[in-house]
Write a protein that binds this DNA or RNA. Sequence first.
DNA 1: TCATAATATGAATAGCCATTCTATTACTTG
DNA 2: CAAGTAATAGAATGGCTATTCATATTATGA
Lengths: 207, 207
Amino acid sequence: MEKSKRKEMEFQLRRAEILSQAEKIFAAKGFHNATMAEIADAAGFATGTLYQFFEGKETLYNVMVSEKIDRMHSEIRDSVSKEEKLTDKIEKLVASHFHFVENNVAFCDLLIRGEGLTLSDKGTILRDKLIADYFNHVSFVESIMRSGMETRTLKSGDPRMMAYTLLGIIRSFFYYWMLTDQDTPLSDKVACVSDIFLKGAGLELPG
Amino acid sequence: MEKSKRKEMEFQLRRAEILSQAEKIFAAKGFHNATMAEIADAAGFATGTLYQFFEGKETLYNVMVSEKIDRMHSEIRDSVSKEEKLTDKIEKLVASHFHFVENNVAFCDLLIRGEGLTLSDKGTILRDKLIADYFNHVSFVESIMRSGMETRTLKSGDPRMMAYTLLGIIRSFFYYWMLTDQDTPLSDKVACVSDIFLKGAGLELPG
DNA sequence: TCATAATATGAATAGCCATTCTATTACTTG
DNA sequence: CAAGTAATAGAATGGCTATTCATATTATGA
C-alpha cells in the first residue's frame, strides 16, 4: 500500500528531527564518542527506532554531513550569483562563508576536526564525496576568478591557484574566530579579507 | 638502582621505534581504527609491552603528535631565522612549511583529518596543547609581519591578520597538493604563494 | 654459574556500544 | 469497535579491543 501523504510527511519530520539531534551530538563529541542511544534519546526515540530511518550509525553520520554541506554550498552559490561586479561577488563569497560559519559553529568545528573522513573502510565513501564536493566548490570559485581575469579586474594567472588562495584565507580567519574571538562578529572581517586578497600585504613604494 | 647509560639508551631506542610505528599506523587508519596490538606487532613487541613505555593508547597518540609538531615548528623557526631580508623570511616560511609537508604526507593527512583533537574528555588535553602550539606559531609569524611593517616592507595593518592570511594560503596550497598533485613538487609553488601574498590578486590599473 | 631483578609475553578480562529482535503500543480501516 | 497492520520500545546479543596480570624470558653482577 502507498504511504499516505500525511504519513510520509510525518516520517520526514521525524527523520529531520533525528538528523538535527545527531548533528548536535556528533558536533559535540565527534563520531566515535557519540552513541546511538544518546542520539535516540535526544530525538525522543528508543535506540532501535533509529534503524527504521537509517541503516546504521555510519549512514546517519554520512547523511547528516552530506546534506549539511550541500545546503552550505548552495547558500553560498545563491548569494554570490546575485551580484554583478566581481569585487561584489568576492565580498559576497567571503560574507556568505562567514555567515554559514557563524550560524553553525559546532558543525564547522566538527568539519575542522575532520572527524569521520576516515571512519572505516566504508567511511571512505563519505571522504570521497566530501572531497568531490570540495572540488566542485573550488571550481565554482575558480570560475569567478576566471571571469575576473577576462574583465581585467584580476591579474592573469592560474585561476585555480587564486581560488585556493581565497578559500585558504577564509578558512584561516574562521578558524581564528572559532578559537579566540566569537564575541565579535566574524562578518566584521569581510572587508579586511577581500582587501588583502585583492591588494596583498606588501607596501607599494611610491615612485 | 640507577639505570645504566646503555640501558637508558636502549630504552629510548625502543620508545622511538614504537612512536615511529605508531605514527605510521595512526596516520594510515586514524586514532580509533588503529589497535594497540597492531602497533605492538609493527614495532616488534607484544601488546602488553607497549604499556611499559606509555600509559595507554591515548598517551601514546598524544606524545606522538606533540613531539612531531614540536619538531615541525622548530624546523620552521630555524630555517626562517637564518634569513635577513623580510621577503626572504617569508619565502623561507612558505618553503619550510612545504618541505615538512612533502616529507610527512601521511602525518599531515592525519592532522588535516584532525583525528584525535577530541578523543575523549581526557583528549582535550591534546587539543589544548595543539591549540596553544598553533597560537605560538601564529605569534611567531606575526612577529615577522610586525618587523616587516617597521621596515616598511609591508603595509601597516594588523600583523596577526596578516599572519593568519599567510598561514591560510599555505594550508590551502598544501591541501590542494595532497589531494590532487603529489607528483609535482609542492616547493614549485613557493614563489607563487609569496607573490600572491605580497601583491594580491587584483590588477593595479595603470594610471 | 646462580640468584635476583628487570623486561617481555600474550592469553584472559572487562567494558563499551552498535545492532538485532520480540513484545508492546498506536494507528488504520472496514 | 475489532481485526489487522505498522511503528516503537528497550532488553539481550555479539563483536571488538584496551588494559591487566600471571608466567616466561632475559640481563645483571657477585
